[in-house]
Design a protein around this nucleic acid. Sequence first.
DNA 1: GTCGACATGTAAATTGTTACATGATTTA
DNA 2: TAAATCATGTAACAATTTACATGTCGAC
Lengths: 176, 176
Amino acid sequence: MYKPTALGYAILGLLLQPKTGYKIRKVFDSTPMGEYSSSPGSIYPALNRLKKESLIEQYIDSTSGKKQYRLTILGKKELQNWCSKPASFNEIQNKMNELMLRFVFMEYFVDTDTVISFLSSVKQNINKYIEQLVDYYDQNKTSIPFHSKLAMEQGIEMVRANLEWTEHALNTIINK
Amino acid sequence: MYKPTALGYAILGLLLQPKTGYKIRKVFDSTPMGEYSSSPGSIYPALNRLKKESLIEQYIDSTSGKKQYRLTILGKKELQNWCSKPASFNEIQNKMNELMLRFVFMEYFVDTDTVISFLSSVKQNINKYIEQLVDYYDQNKTSIPFHSKLAMEQGIEMVRANLEWTEHALNTIINK
DNA sequence: GTCGACATGTAAATTGTTACATGATTTA
DNA sequence: TAAATCATGTAACAATTTACATGTCGAC
């Protein structure tokens, strides 16, 4: 069964508001979503994959008269399903930006309780990850070379900053 | 002219101490370098590419009698050259872990002044990046949806944490 | 003597990158 | 009307993932 890539989900999310492929490229070019390549060689094949799987479709916008891409029912379901998944440990380790993408798009799908439980899963796994990193650091700190030690501190500080943001986000959402 | 991938450079750096391919896999499996896949399907083809380009070679270790990979003169030069590059703006945006890898391996190659100028280039580009993100945030904060705004704050906080680490590293190295 | 760790690969499918290519439409 | 922007693609290449496959060696 077909699963879109991270780029695929990014595109699905952007198509919550219908757009041309070119407009999607511009978003990747000019916003903080720039982690995704805006080259035509990545966008158009990705769009064609999603189209082939009937997750998106093209139509003529009645007001502008222009051809646009939009989500199909199936595509919306796929996006919704993806947004509803809790954060896994693996995603905390090296797919934080994908998690943030989920968080952004879930605003349009799920209720406050589900958002809270998503953020709780993030927090829980971050804590586990910090523990793992600190354990490794403590057990090896006598033998780790100088720069490696600094690099490890950087890694730990990044994850701690993520933890702080997660708590901040939880508080903001609970007191809303 | 051939340029190794990020994985290729990670392997070159690990081969500052000779290792078998299996040992490299174990490092990716069991240390915070786990961002790189440890699957045989990625490691062995990468090793063969490096070997084909004469950046590494296999030899029989005289004490253990085991076949190991080690850097060639050319490979060491390539690694050294890579480590000596200052951080670019693009790398700050979405290749921070590659920069940390450079930082780790440069310990064995370059003098304190070069490390300081590397960290200065990191700091300078981080400042530029923060400015760009904050500008975007300020200019759009009335129109950005709730979750997107939180996600942007996360992005900015991550970069700020990186800035703090960079300043910490600079101080640590200067007062050494 | 068998089980787990050591050790190294290949094949197929998918994806992404870089570069090339084309044409329409808007704007100065 | 020339230049910039809008708009969509293809082709060649390189790299990665997943799964399959094999064989050795030491320990218990």
